[in-house]
Amino acid sequence: MKPRTSPRRLPDQVFAYALLVPAFAFLVLFTVKPLVSTVVSSLYDRRDEGPTLDNYRLLAEDEVFRKALVNNLLFSVLTVPVSLALAMLLAVLLQRALKGKALLRAGVFAPAILPVVAVAVIWLYFYQPNIGVINEVLGWFGVTGPDWLGDTALVLPSLMAMMVWKEAGFFMIFYLAGLQAIDPELDEASLLEGTGRFTHFRRVTFPLLMPTTLFAAIVALADSIKMVDFVFVMTQGGPDNASNLLLYYIYRVTFAQHWPQYGAAISLLVIGVLVALAVLQIRLLDRRIHYR
């Protein structure tokens, strides 16, 4: 390689900007530009006449949207903490000295690497009311299982349970990493003091895992909104829109109904919520490592 001479060297600032060019080119192309055109598009009606606020007016009255929003909020608010709590529990259990630890870790993590659609296919069968595995197992105990996916009250919880099953192993890895960063002396100190397991977890492990929890919560929250693949395979949002989720609704409006303008209005609302959450979480992240 030719030796570089310093006079031709770019100033650091220019060099830094050059480094950012590829990332920002793509960010602009696939985030900024679509964001702007989403705003514009949302102000036009279906025949591209406008500007008008009709889409937003419709949004206020759209019951399907309201259902999808409520469903998605329920879905996020319940699956994220439950997945993380289970992941933490699993990590604490599988971090200990234990015969077959590697095998168990692999087993718990395995669902995490499966595509959501594959998971959905598997569980679609498990959840069948009359010929499904879960109800068959319940039948051994004399319990007549419900119609998991066919009951408007059960369909969302059933889907949540499935996603928790899929996601917990993934976040368990995050927590295993977090646990490894905790000095084992701390556990031993607790052991010597006779601190109970639960107390030790509550007073030591849990607070020390807080940074991991915040990080994982961001990922989990994003997943709870963007992983809607199972709706396509299992319920198509039904019955009675009881399992309709935001992204699935956006997809239906935009592509099945060919109404991108209204889809844009919904997208913007979702983005607004997401950005607000992101800002909130980044604030928390900023404040997270007081004691490090």
């Binding site: 002396e185 701390l186 031993e188 100190a189 006779g194 601190t195 007073r203």
Partner: peptide, 25 residues
């Protein structure tokens, strides 16, 4: 026991650290 790296809980104050065991007991 006094540990090599002191086994102090980074998120607890000095007082809480000292009293950790007494609270457990």
């Amino acid at each position: 026991m006094v540990f090599q790296n002191y086994a102090l809980f980074p998120h607890l104050s000095v007082a809480e650290n000292i009293l950790f065991g007494l609270r457990s007991r």
